[in-house]
Amino acid sequence: MGEVLVKIQPPDHPVHMPEPAAFSAEVESEIDRHLAKYPVKRSAILPLMFIVQRERGYLDPPGVQYLANRLQLRVTDIWEVATFYSMIQTKPVGKYHIQVCKTLSCKLLGADKITKYCSDKLGIKVGETTGDGRFSLSEVECLGSCGTAPMFQLNFDYHENLTTEKVDRALDSLP
């Protein structure tokens, strides 16, 4: 045995997964509706992740435990799927998530300018969240708005043919 220099901390409180998240009856029935669509529960994993994400901001550990219980999977199964898909958030994001399309057609028509404008306006870099947790700014790949470029998606809403004025209008009118 080698020298004892690094120690595993004694488990004064064994680390278990937290209690699963709980949702309102309404959300539960929405989840049931999704589960009913498939012959195999696991198929509902993405729709359910979106719901957990909507309700809790991101897939937090209680949310993950909830999904695992609900789908009869292991938490690691949730992890492997969640981290594959770029729309599934495993870390907290801002209340408003601005996702500027950076792929070719948008880029040709000035996506960079839009990103820079948002970045300056909010005082954050791409990949960051404002201090108040209101805005996150990301660059994403083609969102299917090439004919109406440049564009960003603000949470789920498409804002197309963007100009700096339109960006101002979109962001300033948010509650």
Binding site: G2, E3, V4, L5, V6, K7, I8, Q9, P10
Partner: peptide, 12 residues
């Protein structure tokens, strides 16, 4: 715990 490659994990 930090891992320094030269040392083993050993139990307290």
């Amino acid at each position: 715990f930090a891992i320094s490659p030269l040392y083993q994990i050993t139990i307290d």
